[in-house]
Design a protein around this nucleic acid. Structure first.
Lengths: 104, 104
DNA sequence: TTAAGTAGTTCAGTATTATTGAACTATAGA
DNA sequence: TCTATAGTTCAATAATACTGAACTACTTAA
């Protein structure tokens, strides 16, 4: 079974967070997760209509995960991803909202 | 004479901005510029006490410049760098402040 | 007006990171 | 059990970052 490693809340760094968001595709993924009905989407659900290789997509989700931005859990055949809003707001209050305001 | 190319205000993108800030050294440089007396510092002035190669430093300033974060002008023997606060606040109101709040 | 020093850039090579196709793992349903 | 789905991991290549060495531009002093 696939086990995902998640960074401890206190180990999330500003530079890594910004670096992970420094990519149009990853910004879009995060936006889609935040806009989704219940805050959780599968990988393909969070990155629809892309002509990107699925290994590349998988890489982008890993970058977001490794930076502490999202949490991934296996649910049946798919992975459910959600933004770690609570952790992020404790570590950097208001930051994510301030950034994502500018992502259309 | 060295001429620096600066991005038009409207061409500054969120992803490039975040990507440029996604590095501890560049965050520190920006912080030092913002904290400086009159908002302008030479390259070595903005990145003091580093054991970094000067070509690496030069590279970091270029990344910040190419992302539209700073403006560089040649003044005598040194380069004066300043944060493009006005441009950034027109393009992404409040964003820079929200981010830099977390850079100690 | 040369000589030497300072600040930083550019170049070219190496190191790291991103992207991708192919093969693989895990689960679901017929 | 067989097939399909969703995504990961691997290994190779493509693109970016980092660095030492050489260079440019300006300043100061003889």
């Amino acid at each position: 079974m696939t086990r995902f490693v998640h960074l401890a809340k206190e180990d999330i760094t500003l530079a890594a967070l910004l670096g992970a968001l420094g990519d149009p595709m990853r910004l879009k993924i995060l936006k889609n997760l935040l806009d989704s009905r219940d805050g959780r989407l599968s990988c393909s659900g969070a990155a629809p209509c892309t002509h990107m290789a699925k290994s590349t997509l998988s890489h982008h989700f890993r970058v977001l995960r490794d930076a502490g931005l999202i949490r991934t859990t296996k649910q049946g055949v798919e992975n459910l991803n959600s933004v770690r809003c609570d952790d992020l707001n404790e570590r950097f209050p208001g930051l994510l909202k301030s950034i994502m305001k500018f992502q259309p």
